[in-house]
Structure formats: structure tokens, C-alpha cells
Design a protein around this nucleic acid. Structure first.
Lengths: 217, 217
DNA sequence: GTCTATATCCCGATAGAC
DNA sequence: GTCTATCGGGATATAGAC
């Protein structure tokens, strides 16, 4: 493992190359759209190798999905455990750099019949989104206790809304072939979270000045 | 057209049966997962018929997607143009009966490579979501003018957030194989919209009592 | 207009040599 | 462990009879 930061896969083991190629292809084409042949070609290995290390397409997909879900948790945790107020940390999560037009590699799996119908393949998705909502709930609840956020709303419901805005933002952006709807949705939900604590009376709202988003693609 | 309200397709024309079967299959399996053969079997027609009326799979899919998008606009418009306050109408749209675990038939297309890469096939998605966000923006802006909603936040950004919550709610629900995350996300965003007008000071929020959702599946 | 037959290719998996 | 050869089946489209 002394060459972890490479751009190609040339020096990695066969098994590792297969998993990474599958991760990429599942992201790009989904489960039904990804063939073992395409995986082999991208990984640069023969068919026999794949069936030696994995029992088949679904087994390889399982390894790839698990890996991707773990990575997503780590990325999210970095934002959510950063220093700052609850609002800051939620904003950091929502505005972190994303390949918006490529969509969410985990959320995408959700639209694949074969994936959701298989308890094994769906489990990592369920676990990942469950963890995410729980983690956001904790941050929001802490913010409410500290008085950084309005104390009324159910933190779990707000957390679901925050997570949904991200996933739905991807959908709207891909439909428009433009990242603008994603950025707008994020801005919208942040405005709502922010104005909760700065409102004095109906009609006279001081909107929080949300920092710009960092979407690239 | 004197038998529009039937459950089966038996008395419909061949062309119409093909379009409806395609609508169903695209919803269930997506574009890559839907084969001409499956469409023919469901429609109960032979292969020659299909290639007589349509030039191929993508042409048929285009007709089906357009039809589905039109239907979605009509359903949404019913909620958004109903009597009541702006909040009521947004709530009606968010809580209307949905087959949550089946996902959004239009949003799903967004995850299909072949669809988003084709300008023709993507156009109906873009048009539909663009219209939806515009329509929600109008309702929110009107609510702000009437003092039903806090006047500060950008209505277009809020509209994007509302639309994103629906699409993301589907994703979270399918990952969990449970409608609960969808309902929670809807509740969350409604709480935020509602508390905007009832907040007096930080820490003492009167949350609006959102009516129950009507999800079935 | 609708049907069946056929063509060509790719899918996912297995067999067995090296 | 990795390779190539091969299998049975399905995808998408065309040809041509009726």
C-alpha cells in the first residue's frame, strides 16, 4: 500500500482494480447498464480473473457499493464534525465540492431495480442514508440545544429534508443539464434554516448571507 | 375516445397500447432496463406493429416520456391552483397521494445515461421540472406578497428546495424500502416554511401543525 | 397494419488449458 | 491466478409474407 495516490490503476492488484472499475461504471451507467465485459476492459484483466475473485456481477457490485458507501460516510463526516456552529457544519456539508451533474453514486443505485430488490445490495444504501440522517439529526439537535437554531422543529424531520435536498438537487440538475437547480435548492434550505433564528416578526426577515457553493461539475 | 376510463388496454388502439406499456416499463425498469420485446409482450402486439408506428426504442420512449411529463404537470397544477393559502397549496402538493416506493417516473429518467445524453429525450424532463419550479415560485411569491409567508427568502431558491425534497424523498425512501424518510423530509420542509411566519424570538418557536401525509405505497 | 423469420451482436456464466 | 474458447439466451433491428 505504498502507492495509494495514483491516477491510474496500473500498479494495483487485480482484485482492487476490479472493484475500482466497478465503482466507476456503476456511477456512470448504473447496475443494469454495467456489464462484466465493460468492467474487465476498464480493469485490464481477463474474464477468468474476475470469476476467480468474485462469484459474479452482483458479488462484485456488492463490494463496489460497500466501498463507495464507506467513502461517502467519511467525506460527510469531515464536514459534519468540522469546527463551527451547527448551521456552519450543515452548510459545509451541503456546499462541499460535488460532481453535481454526475449525480450521487449511492443515490443512483436507488433507481436500479435489481439493486433495491436484492436485500444484500440495498443494505449498504440503507445503512449509509440511515447513518447520514442520524448524523445530521445530531448536529441539528446540538444546534438547537446551544440556541444556534430555533428549538421547535423535529431535528430528525429537518435532517431528512436536508438529505433529501441533496439527492433531489442532483435529480433537478441532471434534468436541466445544469448545476444551477442544485445550488438553488441548497440555498433555499439554508435560507430556511438561517431565517429561523433571525426572524423578528412576519414580513421583516433578515436573511442570512449564505456563502457561495463550491460545485465544479 | 368514448372509453377513456378503463383498467386494461384491450380496447385501445395499437399505438396507444404501445405508449402506455412503455410508460409503465420505463417507470418500473428505466430506459436501459426496458426492451422492445418486453413492451410488445405487455402491449400484446407483434414486433412489426411497433416498427410500423415508431422508428425504434428511443422514439417510443420519447412519446412515453412526453405523455408522462404532461400527466405530472396536470396533477401538480391541481394541487398548486387549489383554493387556500400559499402554504396550503405547497402542502397539498407535497402531501398528495404518491406511490413513494415506486419513485418518480420522470425523476427516474434522470438517472439513465442514454436519456440525459440525448437532447431529445432529456427535453421533456427539463421542461417539466422547469415548469414545476416556476409554478412553485409563483405560489411562494404570491404568499409572500399576501403576508402568508415570510418576505425575505428568494422564492425561486425555496421552490427548488421544495421540488428537491420530493425527488430526494423518493431516493431516501427507496434506499430504506420504507416511505418514512419521504414523509419525514416533507414534514421537515413544511415545518421550516411554517415557522417562518410564526417565530417571535430565537428559542421560542410555535411549529405549525402540519396535516398528515397521504402516501400509500 | 400486422405478423413471423432472421440477422447480428452483447450479456452473464462456465470449461478447461496454461 | 489468469487466460481463451464456448455456451445459451436476449437485445435491437430488418426483411418480407400476408
Amino acid at each position: 500500500m505504498y502507492s495509494a495516490a495514483m491516477s491510474t490503476q496500473e500498479q494495483l492488484g487485480t482484485q482492487e482494480r476490479l472493484v475500482r472499475s466497478t465503482q466507476e461504471l456503476l456511477w456512470e451507467r448504473g447496475y443494469v447498464g454495467t456489464s462484466p465485459k465493460a468492467i474487465l476492459e476498464r480493469a485490464g484483466v481477463g474474464q477468468g480473473s474476475m470469476y476467480h475473485h468474485f462469484s459474479g456481477k452482483s458479488d462484485l457490485a456488492l463490494a463496489a457499493i460497500r466501498r463507495t458507501a464507506e467513502g461517502m460516510k467519511e467525506t460527510a463526516e469531515e464536514c459534519l464534525s468540522a469546527p463551527g456552529t451547527a448551521y456552519d457544519r450543515i452548510a459545509a456539508y451541503l456546499q462541499r465540492e460535488r460532481k453535481v451533474l454526475r449525480g450521487c453514486p449511492i443515490g443512483r443505485m436507488t433507481q436500479d431495480r435489481d439493486v433495491v430488490q436484492s436485500p444484500e445490495l440495498r443494505a449498504p444504501l440503507d445503512e449509509m442514508f440511515g447513518w447520514l440522517q442520524g448524523r445530521i439529526t445530531e448536529v441539528l439537535a446540538e444546534g438547537q440545544r446551544r440556541g444556534e437554531l430555533a428549538a421547535g422543529p423535529d431535528p430528525a424531520a429537518l435532517a431528512a429534508a436536508v438529505a433529501a435536498v441533496v439527492q433531489g438537487g442532483y435529480v433537478l440538475a441532471r434534468a436541466a443539464d445544469d448545476t444551477a437547480p442544485f445550488d438553488a435548492a441548497v440555498r433555499g434550505v439554508l435560507m430556511l434554516l438561517a431565517t429561523q433564528v433571525t426572524v423578528d416578526a412576519p414580513g421583516t426577515v433578515e436573511t442570512a448571507d449564505a456563502p457561495r457553493t463550491g460545485t465544479t461539475n
